[in-house]
Amino acid sequence: MNVVVCVKQIPDPAAPSALDPVTHNLDRSGKLILDDSDSYGVEMGLQLASGDGDEVILVSMAPGGETSGLRTALAMGAARAILVSDDALSGTDSLGTAKVLAAAISRAEPDLVLTATESTDGYTGTIPAQIAELLGLPSVTFAKKIAVDGSTVRVERQTEAGFDEVECPLPAVVSVTAGVVEPRYPSFKGIMAAKSKPVDVLAVADLGIEGGQVGSAGARQEVTDVADAEAREGGEIVVDEGNGAERILAFLEELKVI
């Protein structure tokens, strides 16, 4: 079984992030790392594709030929990666990103495509359904448990009320939530092995996508303004000296909650 896992490489969320004051795009000029949300898909893929001849193939779109995040996922155990990197992609929206990813994914002829439910930096959450529609595949989003049984994938899908058990024929696109599995840490051996694993770097033209479909022009949307939001004022801070509960009680009375 071939499992493609989409992995986004993003600016480190721990570092302060900012939008470019002119383009209003997220500043992606620094080193990019594997989106933590995608480590679950990588782990899930590795567990599902553990038989002989099974392969986990990573697909990523990122600027500047970035491979740091891909190397992390390769070190976890993925076999190889396809990276789409092209200056023409700067400012691409989610639909354009989905077109690029779908074209790259179809090269790997997957039985199953895994993504996260939403990325940490852009979090539109629309990519999984867009990829599925572009590939003409069924999809199950918000998977909190996945099992493959022959040519069927069985998923526990989160709902407002609890979860649904969903069955879907393969090939299919499944988006996974954090917590679907516990991602492994790359071993030293894995890290060394990852250095020589193949990463196929492609440009937009290699995928047969017209330039007008991607980049800022293809996005057909723009950020017109970014401003500081009205800050919520912090209030009174009390160090508990046995009186903490009392203070809360008094506040609740003031609010007439009790």
């Binding site: 989610s94 989905a98 539109t124 629309t126 359904a129 867009q130 599925a132 529609e133 057909r220």
Partner: peptide, 16 residues
């Protein structure tokens, strides 16, 4: 899910 699929069908971007 509906928004994502419809955006492809109509070839229109989505603001989320």
């Amino acid at each position: 899910d509906v928004a994502g699929r419809l955006s492809v069908k109509l070839d229109r971007p989505v603001i989320t």
